[in-house]
């Protein structure tokens, strides 16, 4: 709760809620059981920085192994970073007292990909959605029940659903339950990890629209982790493209889709499936696969697959440059 600007037009809502500075997560790789030795580090996230504004959505796209899920875990405090800072409303969450950390944890919630495994099958809906409030809030039971009913209504379910178990719902409805649970503590941010990719096509649109509506009603920020570029275009305000633990390009959504600069972003766009058979796509088929993050390539990490690679790409690490207002990329071409 800082400035009064958040009640203005959406475009003036731009105060920063969360800032990540040079965040790193290196997992030690060990050999041997009893006297195990660290033989190397898996650099899952290796120096990323970004900001999330109030009421806005940042999308992180990339292929498996690029570090997007580790980033989500770091933000949810499920992993301790090796280096770097996460500033939430200006406060470094790892160097603050326990009560601040606790309030951070309730301000940042998550909705996961698979609503079949993310809801406890032995709990009734009212307990699933009410549980975070029982743990975090000291309010009477009646109030929690009322709020559960309101949340159910907000996500498009009915009050009678409160007494049912998760198995009595379809995939789309289950994802609605997961969203209601995520919203129960009035969070300021929700981490959405592939929230629609496990759902059927016609249900995806329902859930994406619901998430957009709820963002307006609850003034919540989203961090959306996704691999489907069209989904990201529809949902996000800002996009970060990740490759092997680093952000290679970062821009506002329109700018990124109309003017992708990094060769990896271009390749992703050309590999994404078209929405009409007559759309001609630039054909950039990347050869090979993502190298192992255990032993990332020297210089620019993308140079082994890059169609525009030059000699210096294998030697020098490209700097992150701002090529247009708000549009940064790390590539020797620019």
């Amino acid at each position: 709760m800082t400035t009064g600007s958040q009640h203005g037009e959406p475009s003036t809502q731009g105060s920063v809620l969360l800032e990540v500075r040079d965040l790193k997560k290196h997992f030690p790789v060990t050999k041997g059981l009893l006297f195990s030795q660290t033989t190397g580090y898996l650099k899952a996230v290796d120096g990323i920085s970004f900001q999330i504004e109030r009421g806005k959505t940042l999308g992180i796209v990339g292929e498996s192994g690029c570090g997007k899920s580790t980033t989500a875990k770091l933000l949810l405090m499920l992993e301790e970073p090796t280096e770097g800072q996460i500033l939430f409303e200006g406060e470094d969450i790892h160097h603050t007292d326990a009560s601040h950390r606790r309030s951070y944890r309730s301000s940042v919630q998550a909705v996961f990909q698979d609503p079949w495994s993310s809801l406890n099958p032995r709990m009734r809906v009212k307990d699933l959605i009410g549980e975070p409030m029982v743990i975090n809030w000291d309010v009477p039971k009646r109030e929690i029940e009322e709020r559960v009913e309101k949340l159910l209504g907000d996500v498009g379910l009915s009050t009678y659903h409160a007494n049912l178990f998760p198995h009595e719902f379809s995939g789309g409805q289950r994802q609605r339950l997961a969203i209601a649970r995520g919203l129960s503590l009035n969070p300021k941010m929700i981490v959405l990890d592939e929230p629609v990719s496990a759902l059927d096509v016609s249900i995806r649109a329902q859930i994406m629209n619901l998430l957009k509506d709820l963002q307006n009603d609850y003034e919540v920020s989203y961090l959306l982790i996704a691999h489907h570029l069209a989904t990201v275009r529809y949902m996000c305000d800002w996009v970060a493209v990740m490759y092997l633990g680093q952000i290679v390009e970062y821009a506002e959504v329109k700018e990124l889709y109309n003017n992708p600069l990094h060769p990896y972003t271009k390749a992703l766009m050309s590999a994404a499936l078209p929405s009409h058979p007559d759309i001609e796509q630039e054909e950039i088929i990347l050869t090979g696969e993502v190298p192992s993050p255990l032993n990332p390539p020297s210089g620019c990490r993308f140079h082994t697959r890059c169609p525009f690679a030059m000699d210096r790409c294998a030697i020098e690490i490209p700097e992150t440059r701002e090529v247009a207002p708000g549009h940064t990329t790390s590539c020797h071409l620019y």
Partner: peptide, 12 residues
Amino acid sequence: SVPKLEEDVDRL
């Protein structure tokens, strides 16, 4: 109901 890669869609 499918979001498009090539253009902005206001609402699906």
